[in-house]
Computed example of a mutant assay.
Amino acid sequence: MLSIGEFSKICEVSTKTLRYYDEIGLIHPDEINPENGYRYYSIKQLKKMLFINRLKSYYFSLEEIKDILEWEQDKSEERLYVALNLKKREIQEKLRTYEFTLKQINNDVINLEKGIPMMSYLNEIKVQLVETQPMNILFTRQMLSSDDYTLGYGHYFSRLYEKIATDKLTLLGTPITIYHSEEYNPAGNDTEFALPIEEIVKGTRELREGLCAKSVYKGPYSELTSVYAKLTEWIENEGYDLVSSPYEKYITDPTQTTDPEDLVTEVYFPVKKRS
Rank of each mutant, 00 (worst) to 15 (best):
G239Q: 03
A165T: 13
T204P: 00
E35C: 05
I176V: 12
R274M: 14
R96K: 12
Y161P: 02
D190M: 06
S181G: 07
E198Q: 14
L160W: 04
E90C: 07
A213I: 05
D22W: 01
Y250A: 03
L18E: 05
K230M: 08
F157P: 00
F139E: 08
N185Q: 06
K9H: 11
E6W: 04
V264I: 14
L169Y: 13
D67M: 12
K94I: 10
L195A: 03
E198N: 13
Q92V: 09
I27S: 01
N111E: 11
P29D: 05
Y21C: 06
Y81G: 08
Y221Q: 08
V267M: 09
H155M: 12
N53V: 05
R274D: 13
K114S: 09
T174Y: 09
S244T: 05
L62A: 05
L129P: 02
E248F: 06
Y161K: 00
I52F: 02
Q133M: 10
D22I: 02
S215W: 05
P34M: 02
V264E: 12
G239Y: 09
L122R: 13
A213R: 03
S181L: 09
S14T: 11
L171K: 09
T257N: 00
I197P: 11
T140Q: 09
L207C: 05
V13S: 01
F269N: 04
I164L: 08
E93M: 11
Q133G: 08
P260Q: 03
E70P: 07
P196C: 03
K126I: 11
V82K: 09
D241I: 15
L211M: 07
E198R: 13
L169K: 14
E35S: 12
Y153N: 02
K168L: 09
F51I: 03
P134I: 00
D262A: 13
M118T: 14
E72P: 08
S61Y: 11
N111S: 09
T258C: 15
K75I: 15
E261G: 07
D262S: 11
T150S: 14
E77R: 12
K56C: 04
Y250Q: 05
K16P: 07
I4S: 12
Y156S: 00
I110Q: 13
P246I: 04
R208D: 10
M119F: 15
A194F: 02
Y41W: 00
I65G: 05
E63G: 09
G152H: 00
K44T: 10
K75H: 14
F139H: 10
L211V: 06
L55K: 01
V216I: 12
L26M: 04
R141G: 02
Y228Q: 12
E233W: 11
I200C: 13
T150A: 15
I43D: 14
Y240E: 07
D253I: 07
T257A: 01
V13M: 03
S14E: 01
K272N: 14
Y20E: 03
S158F: 00
I235V: 15
P134K: 09
Y149E: 11
L2V: 05
T15C: 06
K9W: 04
Y20S: 06
P246D: 11
E78S: 10
E199P: 04
A229L: 15
T265E: 00
G152Y: 00
D167C: 07
N185V: 13
L171Q: 05
Y81A: 11
G154D: 00
L122E: 08
A165H: 10
Q104L: 10
E266Y: 01
E199L: 05
K103T: 15
Q104Y: 12
D67C: 08
D22V: 01
